[in-house]
Design a protein around this nucleic acid. Sequence first.
DNA 1: CGGAATCCTAACCGATACTG
DNA 2: CAGTATCGGTTAGGATTCCG
Lengths: 141, 141
Amino acid sequence: MTTRTATERRARAKVEYDAFLATCPSRQLLDRLSDKWVVLVLCALGGEGGDGPGAPRAMRYSELARLIAGVSQKMLTQTLRSLERDGLVTRTVVATVPVTVSYELTDLGESLHGTTRLLRAWAQDHMDAVLARREEHDAAS
Amino acid sequence: MTTRTATERRARAKVEYDAFLATCPSRQLLDRLSDKWVVLVLCALGGEGGDGPGAPRAMRYSELARLIAGVSQKMLTQTLRSLERDGLVTRTVVATVPVTVSYELTDLGESLHGTTRLLRAWAQDHMDAVLARREEHDAAS
DNA sequence: CGGAATCCTAACCGATACTG
DNA sequence: CAGTATCGGTTAGGATTCCG
């Protein structure tokens, strides 16, 4: 039983590692944030919609769609659903005709929004350096 | 010329927004970080490889492959190449036989590693709450 | 207005095999 | 040892159409 092929060992390692990845908190967070639109929705609901920061506020579906101009309604809906599922935004339906739906950050959502701002800060401070390195590197090819 | 169809307007908005997304620093950073293995490589080179933090250090290709057990060599190479391109890691080749290659974080890379730690902190503090909300939500379906 | 359902394509990514 | 090259399955996500 000590005779295991390299392939078997690799397969085993993979399973264990996948399990680790699946349960690692920071990976779970990154999987969430890596969704192209999550951060933008967070920004919009966090009040950073119209140039410059503002107070977090509730927004209607169509407001979000207009503000985050490039998003398809499929992705916007999908993003909002997953954020709602994770307790980061609330979804409120008012039974007018036609129906009115508004979204708002929860406390948890605002907390996450605060963290994404730190990311943004790093990006704003260092991303130009990264891009410069990239150009240098490409030029030196 | 003021008569534009909704489709035309949407197409226009999409192009503009894609351009915005492509040049927005925080989006560029997130695109980088969203790569499944980037953060793990950063952690490994940052010294968080063998449980608990350590000092950043240079590592060989095979060391990384062993530490980040689940990664395919294709993805590891691809990840390292892109990190090198962005000036976040250095690649050093020593012409022994067989050849020896080692990778190390640059200052920029260490700086980014520091930021990903903040993410990890948020994840560790709040991710359980998120998961709890998720289960509640799924149960209430 | 705020979606849901369907179709369809491009990109990603793992597995495998080969190389200097 | 440290890769490159290629193939094939899976999936993300856009466009479109329909619905309460």
